[in-house]
Computed example of a mutant assay.
Amino acid sequence: MSTPFEIESFEEYLQTVRNELPEGRKYFRGQTKLVSAGYELKPSIGRYGHLLEKSFRERDELEREVLDVFSNHLVTHVQHLPRTDWEALAIAQHHGLPTRFMDWTTNPLVALYFAVRETKTDDDGGPISSAVYVLISDPQRYTNFNRKQQPAVKPVKDLATTPATRGSGYEEFGVEGLDPSEEDDPTPPTATTTDEMVEGSMHSPTPSPFEITENVIYHPPHVSPRMRAQDSVLLACQKPFEALEERDCLEIIIRHDAHDDIRRRLDQYGVFDRQLFPDLDGIAKWLRYRVFESKGEL
């Protein structure tokens, strides 16, 4: 994995994100532990080593069965039932169930928060650096599946409107009239059937997250204020028991001796506990930081 950056301050991180990263769409993930320290970039379900003893078919069936059980219990806990396995799996991920989804964000400051909010220690008790990982491979997006299924609507002529011709008065605005071949077309409009309007939509349905053939970025519905506040996106992994390939990511190391100052700066800029966790848990975490951890004032 490419590790061209080692950050020592909040300003240096901002400059790196603004000026040093490759062009294109980017997603960010903050981790308190580095990949090199053994915390690989893989989904939560992929961290259970004993599942590797099962065959691919057995693991696939287990994932589906667990989601089915979880979905059966959703009825009494949510206002709107999920319409697809994608939505159900996103809710399960949000509530801590191990899935093939990985949490990412479009907001680099949110990723920085998750990287520095808690400074981890090594086996000897010394503080360790953290990292923000940048997904640069531009994976397939879930919205592309839906876009391919949208009906291809064919235009129908408006019989109540007189066709526009040359010399219609718009030349002064730089708008030409219609091509002569299009003027006064005597051919009546033909009826458009539903089958004609929907071209192939029934033949290319959106695959289940268990059936994808490549990693897919999924923007889940905002089932809670946390997901909206954190600009959350999910990476559905085709091979959830394997780490992402090194070529897919960049690593921005955040030095442990910069954590304290970065935490203060994030709090000042409103990217901290009570904003990212807009509930009682977030308020409690923020008060714990302000009063007990940083010995600050309210």
Score class of each variant (00 low, 15 high):
6 E>Y: 04
6 E>M: 02
7 I>A: 05
7 I>W: 05
8 E>L: 03
9 S>D: 05
14 L>Q: 12
15 Q>D: 14
16 T>F: 02
24 G>S: 15
29 R>D: 03
32 T>L: 09
33 K>H: 10
37 A>N: 08
38 G>W: 03
40 E>A: 04
40 E>W: 05
41 L>E: 09
42 K>E: 08
43 P>S: 14
46 G>D: 08
46 G>Y: 04
47 R>S: 09
47 R>V: 12
48 Y>I: 06
51 L>Y: 06
56 F>H: 08
57 R>E: 09
58 E>W: 05
59 R>E: 04
59 R>P: 11
59 R>L: 00
63 E>K: 08
67 L>F: 03
67 L>T: 06
70 F>N: 10
74 L>N: 09
75 V>S: 15
76 T>I: 02
77 H>R: 11
79 Q>H: 13
79 Q>D: 11
80 H>F: 02
83 R>M: 15
85 D>F: 07
86 W>I: 04
88 A>W: 11
101 F>T: 04
106 T>C: 04
106 T>K: 08
108 P>E: 05
119 T>E: 10
120 K>E: 13
121 T>A: 09
123 D>S: 06
123 D>T: 11
124 D>T: 11
129 S>W: 00
130 S>K: 02
131 A>V: 05
136 I>P: 06
136 I>V: 15
137 S>I: 02
143 T>C: 13
145 F>K: 12
145 F>T: 13
150 Q>E: 15
151 P>L: 13
152 A>D: 15
159 L>T: 12
164 A>I: 15
164 A>D: 09
171 E>C: 12
172 E>S: 13
177 G>I: 09
181 S>N: 01
182 E>C: 11
185 D>W: 04
191 A>W: 00
196 E>V: 06
200 G>T: 08
201 S>F: 12
204 S>F: 15
212 I>M: 05
217 I>E: 07
218 Y>M: 10
221 P>M: 15
223 V>I: 08
225 P>E: 01
228 R>H: 10
232 S>N: 07
235 L>C: 04
241 F>Y: 15
241 F>C: 03
242 E>F: 06
242 E>H: 03
244 L>E: 01
248 D>G: 02
252 I>V: 09
253 I>R: 00
259 H>S: 00
260 D>R: 05
264 R>C: 03
271 V>D: 01
273 D>G: 00
274 R>N: 07
276 L>F: 05
276 L>D: 02
281 D>G: 05
281 D>E: 15
282 G>R: 02
282 G>T: 04
283 I>F: 08
284 A>P: 06
286 W>F: 01
289 Y>A: 03
295 K>D: 11
295 K>T: 13
296 G>H: 05
296 G>A: 11
298 L>R: 03
